[in-house]
Design a protein around this nucleic acid. Sequence first.
RNA 1: GGUCACAUAGCUCAGUUGGUAGAGCACUGCGUUCACAUCGCAGUUGUCACAGGUUCGAGUCCUGUUGUGACCACCA
Length: 769
Amino acid sequence: MSVKSLDKIYNPKDFEHDGYRKAAHLFGPTGTGENYFSLLMPPPNVTGSLHLGHALTYTIQDILVRFHRIAGFDTIWQPGTDHAGIATQMVVARDLESAGIDPKSLSQDEFIDKIWEWKDKSGNNILDQQKALGCSAAWDYSRFTMDNGFCESVIEAFVTLYKSGLIFRDKRLVNWDTKLKTAISDLEIQNKEEKGTLWYIKYRIVDSSDFVTIATTRPETMFGDTAIAVHPDDERYKSLIGKMAIIPYSDRSIPIIADDYIDMEKGTGCLKVTPAHDPNDFAIGKRHDLEMISVIDMDGHLVSAYVPDLLRGLYLKKARKILVEKLTEDGTLTKEEEITHSVPYGDRSGTVVEPLLTEQWFVDAKAMAEEAIRVVEDNEIRFFPDKWKNTYFDWMRHIEPWCISRQIIWGHRIPAWYGPNGEIIVEKTEEEAFLVAEKLGIQIKQLRRETDVLDTWFSSGLWPFATFGWPKENSELLKRYYPTTTLVSGFDIIFFWIARMIMMSLFFMKKIPFKDIYIHALVRDEKGQKMSKSKGNVINPMDLIDEFGADALRFTLAFLSVPGRDIKFGRDHVKISRNFITKIWNAGRFLQSKGVLFTGSVSNINSKLNHWILVKLKNFKIEINKNIAEYRFDYATRNIQYFLREMFCDFFIEAMKFQDDDETKTVAGFVFAEFLRSANPFIPFVTEQLAETLGIIEDGSLVMARAKQIEPMNLSDDFEKEVDDFVELVHEIRSEKQLLGENNEKYNALMQKIQSWPGELRNLAQIVR
RNA sequence: GGUCACAUAGCUCAGUUGGUAGAGCACUGCGUUCACAUCGCAGUUGUCACAGGUUCGAGUCCUGUUGUGACCACCA
């Protein structure tokens, strides 16, 4: 509904805000002009629906984009979605199950088709919600991390990194998710504090009746032990070093070795070393060149020829229970102790993660991190707030090889082929791989294509340049909009995404991907607790938009965005914002009823009142521009409130009721129009609706998004102080009247003063009332 | 164990180079006068966590303590 007259009170439900639809074609880049502003939208997972965290991050991004667009920058806000490998595959599998379909009964291709179906449905859902929030992204340029062009980018990146020696294949200890049956990276692990048991177990010394006692929380892994380690200076065990010990229920004997890593205080001071199933033991194993014996399979069963028949093939938990019973029975287990320790869980699956020895693909992150650290040290890339760079450095300086292969089906398939004798061929296409194979004398039918896919974050890491057409040589978008200007993100993906983008961009583009990184807060509930489905305290932003309007939600989120502090979000805040937006609406109604014209030019101002409001407007614009440039959106919303309420409504509009000559009306129209422009990034729907209805912009073509910046006039501050004094006197008189009534000496004196105020302002004394 | 935050009115929070403590909500009183009751006008509310120090002067700077939270590492 388009309103010509603002004859009713603002209610978000009454307006469809079709200004958004009309302006949508203007959201893309123009490709012209000197300055550009380029912003990447962190691609939401295709599985997702909008939550308040999204609403916050998109609001901040849209504020930046609209602000720069209005200021005349050529602006691109690059949107898209992420295929989110594991997460999506899980959600779709669950969806199929609830529809009575067993995902395992589908072929791989059928399953992938189902995922694409889901993606189309879910992707649109997110898009609609982003639009409802008012996001002015370059929708026509939207990308998906698995669209055709992006697939090419990923292949190119992988092959280039491989041939540069930065991607390698290796047999290492990786985090294995026994439920999803895939490797996952260190970042995808959540450690949880848990109660557990520490078991003390005796190992007999070979050719002796003596024992050595170790303490362990995982007795079932003892069949993979290949040493017992003690500290070289430990007087208790010095004499044992070099001797052999026998693993219970096994005829296998293992050496007792000395290693500095051992802590004499912990447990018994003797550590069973299981290199294939523990990262620290793996390191010890490497140092001492120990055998690595795997006794756990990829489903989480205890397997291996070294495992006694009784336990072989059982799930770990079951095997542990039986083993502990047996050991207790025959006195090999001497002590049990309750302890709390932390246990690694898979982020997505929620099951215990097993360190397993498998062949995987890795990125040599250490090599790539060097330059990525330097650009932040040298302030080529800056964090806002600054403190986050410490978090970044901390991780980057201790970075480990990044495991990028996943044993799932939804994702970018690794472009590698294996020959019959362990040859590895990595090429962009099958044809090229075949050519290489021929040269090596390998028959094509002997080649086996890698089935693993890449970690989702490998493709997301290419987002800053792949979205703009890389590796195409002639990409105009890449030339014009890379590097991007700013990145807006939550702290939770500094490692997952931001660090990877910086490393990838520096390698492939030889230039930083963005100059500023704005890290926003986490949205919590009113009590400061994390919002989660299980707690039932999740607030759906769409409900808030329905009830209070997107403008109110946006304004609230910006208002609460204090750097370095989490947001405690309550719906009362949104209501307050809605009330303020009503205030703007009503100011517009008043001006319209006064017959104000909004297109007049302002020059040769005579009235002090008008001069005053213009100075206040100028200051307001300076302040808000400064605050947005410094990412202080909380201050900016306060600027908006203060100017509109205290300056414009409470004094200027009230004064207008006694001074409504043509000059004042022209100034009022000018000031209000300029206010709407400044507030538009925060309050797009209502400002656009008002601008259209009041004739500030041409009807039917909402070019608010491209409004010309009107340079602040060269105003002197001459009259500012006098009117400020006058305003203060008005407050003083009202206060006096309220406290002591109208018949007292002080009140009379103040009234006398205001009524004999020299010059123009005397007429405004009536404002006291 | 390491790192980083935070602690200001009943509540949520500002306080940007050290100079008489602020806003909104809540609460109290008044008010429907040419926008606005989704409102206006006016008012009440503080050992700025604690203890020291620097300074003419500290919410602000320094040290320590307590409490809360986050992240990283370790966990035999």
